[in-house]
Amino acid sequence: MPTLYLIRHCSASGQESDAPLTEAGHEQAHLLRDFFREIPIDRITSSDYTRAIASVTPLADAHQFSIEREPLLRERILAYEPLEDWLTPLRQSFIDPTFKLPGAESGEEATQRIMQVIQRAQSRHGSTLLVTHGNLLALLLQRLDSKYDFDTWRTMRNPDVYRLDLSDEEPVIKCIWPHK
């Protein structure tokens, strides 16, 4: 079975699709490169948002890999309008996967989207890095193992790395990012 490394992007200057990494985010991208120096990887698939691509560009360059851009790994759209209290609907979406604000994406819809990428990656041999965003990653983890929840999202770091081993039985998920 293939091994997947699920990566939350490095620190960015905002939530827009073209938001660049911060100075700290660029340093984190180099830490990611160094972290994966001795870990065999075969491909990198990333959200097409600027911050996700930039998070693994040093790693891709070091391995002489191209980065496959995958729109299905984009961040989940919680709301189209700015919300004064966005934590309450976000928390609700972890409790009720069908909950969604008008015109936005439910947790279930977002999870179905990333599961398409997981299923494609499962059919490949070797190790794949999937670079995505915090909310979408936390929803995926919750789908695979119910112990992951809203608090998982709240405690995720930028970046964060989870190793996912898929088998015929239960998936095995482990947070492997050592940096605080």
Results as ranks from 00 to 15, higher is better:
residue 22 T to R: 05
residue 37 R to A: 08
residue 12 A to I: 03
residue 46 S to W: 07
residue 19 A to M: 12
residue 13 S to G: 08
residue 31 L to K: 11
residue 35 F to D: 00
residue 21 L to Q: 09
residue 32 L to M: 06
residue 28 Q to Y: 02
residue 41 I to K: 03
residue 40 P to H: 02
residue 41 I to Q: 05
residue 40 P to K: 02
residue 33 R to H: 10
residue 39 I to N: 04
residue 11 S to L: 11
residue 20 P to V: 09
residue 16 E to Q: 15
residue 27 E to K: 13
residue 19 A to L: 09
residue 34 D to S: 14
residue 17 S to K: 01
residue 38 E to S: 08
residue 23 E to S: 13
residue 34 D to E: 15
residue 44 I to D: 02
residue 23 E to R: 13
residue 28 Q to E: 14
residue 47 S to H: 01
residue 15 Q to K: 13
residue 46 S to G: 09
residue 20 P to E: 12
residue 21 L to R: 01
residue 20 P to Q: 07
residue 47 S to M: 03
residue 27 E to V: 14
residue 15 Q to N: 13
residue 36 F to G: 00
residue 25 G to K: 00
residue 28 Q to V: 05
residue 16 E to K: 04
residue 15 Q to C: 10
residue 35 F to Q: 12
residue 34 D to N: 14
residue 35 F to C: 05
residue 39 I to R: 09
residue 16 E to Y: 12
residue 31 L to T: 06
residue 15 Q to A: 11
residue 32 L to Q: 02
residue 21 L to C: 05
residue 37 R to V: 12
residue 35 F to V: 02
residue 39 I to F: 06
residue 35 F to K: 03
residue 23 E to C: 09
residue 18 D to G: 05
residue 38 E to V: 08
residue 23 E to D: 12
residue 11 S to T: 12
residue 36 F to S: 01
residue 38 E to M: 06
residue 31 L to N: 03
residue 37 R to I: 05
residue 29 A to Y: 03
residue 18 D to I: 03
residue 29 A to W: 07
residue 26 H to R: 15
residue 41 I to A: 04
residue 34 D to Y: 15
residue 24 A to I: 10
residue 16 E to L: 12
residue 42 D to V: 06
residue 38 E to H: 11
residue 40 P to T: 04
residue 31 L to C: 08
residue 11 S to E: 14
residue 40 P to I: 00
residue 28 Q to L: 11
residue 34 D to L: 13
residue 38 E to D: 13
residue 39 I to G: 13
residue 34 D to V: 09
residue 11 S to V: 00
residue 34 D to K: 14
residue 38 E to C: 01
residue 14 G to P: 06
residue 15 Q to M: 13
residue 12 A to W: 03
residue 29 A to S: 12
residue 27 E to Q: 15
residue 16 E to C: 04
residue 36 F to K: 03
residue 13 S to N: 08
residue 15 Q to I: 13
residue 47 S to T: 10
residue 45 T to K: 00
residue 43 R to M: 08
residue 24 A to Q: 01
residue 40 P to Y: 05
residue 14 G to Q: 05
residue 32 L to N: 00
residue 16 E to H: 14
residue 40 P to M: 00
residue 43 R to A: 15
residue 19 A to I: 08
residue 30 H to G: 10
residue 47 S to P: 06
residue 11 S to Q: 15
residue 24 A to D: 05
residue 26 H to D: 02
residue 28 Q to F: 07
residue 32 L to E: 00
residue 18 D to P: 02
residue 31 L to I: 08
residue 31 L to D: 01
residue 22 T to K: 12
residue 27 E to W: 10
residue 30 H to S: 13
residue 16 E to T: 11
residue 22 T to A: 02
residue 18 D to Q: 06
residue 34 D to F: 14
residue 27 E to S: 12
residue 47 S to A: 06
residue 27 E to R: 15
residue 46 S to T: 04
residue 46 S to M: 04
residue 20 P to K: 03
residue 45 T to G: 05
residue 20 P to C: 06
residue 36 F to W: 10
residue 44 I to F: 13
residue 34 D to I: 07
residue 30 H to K: 14
residue 26 H to P: 00
residue 21 L to A: 03
residue 28 Q to S: 05
residue 29 A to P: 06
residue 14 G to D: 11
residue 37 R to H: 14
residue 13 S to P: 01
residue 25 G to L: 11
residue 45 T to D: 06
